[in-house]
Amino acid sequence: MHFVEAKGLLSSKNGMNIYRGCTHGCIYCDSRSLCYNMTHAFEDIEVKSNAPQLLEKALRSKRKKCMIGTGSMCDPYLPIEGELNLTRKCLELIEQYQFGAAVLTKSDLVLRDTELLASINQQAKAVVQMTMTTFDDSLCSIIEPAVCNTRRRFEVLMEMKRNNIPTVAWLTPFLPYINDTEENLRGLLGYCAEAGVKGIICFGIGLTLRDGNREYFYSALDRHFQGLSDRYRREYGLSYEIVSPNHDRLMGIFHEFCGKYGIMRNRECFEYLSELPEKYRQLTLF
């Protein structure tokens, strides 16, 4: 890892990425794409060492309370967070200034901050989002080799449920001919139902490939799924959107499930994640 003094932290939509790069090793990761102009090795994590100071300055200057999001590009709970505690320090500031928080992760390290997230949720709003792609944990260890398995992520969701912290699941991506099966989808949806998630984000049954992440993905296919990269090249060429042949059928199952259990999906989830209850915004008037 290496440290930088960043000039800013919050995006125009109040998102923050404290780290840049990742060590989870997910074979499909879009953040490897060349279009993001990363100037260092992906596993050499860039750390915004002044992130808490930048966040405090931004929160002090805001006239209205809002949700602060993290994890859209890089996981806020990388292993180095256990040492550096920058995500935690930022959450402490969010709590102090009575803003809301929405965190997106694959890591069970988020459990360390359960009490803090519960406190934020009591006074404003906190949402924990968990990405789950692969119900079979032996397959998960190939697709996402350096982060906790899906069963453990389900346990995280259950712990959030016990602490009355709302959750949203991201079921993405589904890799054609690997985890794009009805068995896999129903297994993940079963976890969602048991954990009582408020919403599920599923962009479709497939993935996206761009220059940079495509090469890494195909190299991983060659190591673990012999001949599959050739099939991808034949069927998809250099397409950005890689759509599973099972897309329509599995998305039908997804939408039927969400309707049955009253679970928000996709655009509803994004609206929910960005919305801070009116009663908390009104506190800034007094």
Results as ranks from 00 to 15, higher is better:
Gly259Ile: 00
Tyr261Ala: 06
Gly259Asn: 11
Gly252Ala: 11
Ile263Val: 12
Leu273Arg: 03
Arg265Ala: 08
Phe257Ser: 03
His255Ala: 02
Tyr261Lys: 12
Ser274Gln: 11
Cys269Gly: 00
Arg265Thr: 05
Cys258Leu: 08
His255Phe: 05
Gly252Met: 03
Ile253Lys: 15
Phe257Arg: 06
Tyr261Leu: 13
Met264Thr: 06
Ile253Arg: 12
Glu275Ala: 14
Arg267Tyr: 03
Phe257Gly: 00
Cys258Thr: 08
Arg249Ile: 08
Gly262Ile: 09
Met264Trp: 07
Lys260Val: 01
Asn266Lys: 12
Ile253Asn: 06
Arg267Cys: 09
Leu273Asn: 04
Gly259Tyr: 04
Glu268Asp: 13
Cys258Val: 01
Glu271Pro: 01
Glu271Thr: 08
Gly252Asp: 07
Ile253Glu: 09
Phe257Tyr: 11
Asn266Gln: 13
Ile263Cys: 07
His255Leu: 07
Met264Asp: 05
Arg249Gln: 15
Tyr272Phe: 15
Phe270His: 12
Asp248Lys: 15
Tyr272Ile: 04
Arg267Leu: 13
Gly259Glu: 04
Asn266Glu: 08
Cys258Tyr: 04
Ser274Arg: 12
Ser274His: 09
Glu275Thr: 15
Ile253Ser: 05
Phe270Leu: 11
Phe257Asp: 00
Phe270Glu: 11
Lys260Trp: 02
His255Arg: 14
Arg265Tyr: 09
Asp248Ser: 15
Tyr272Pro: 02
Met264Lys: 12
Glu275Tyr: 15
Leu250Ile: 08
Ile263Gly: 01
Ile263Arg: 02
Phe254Ser: 03
Glu275Cys: 12
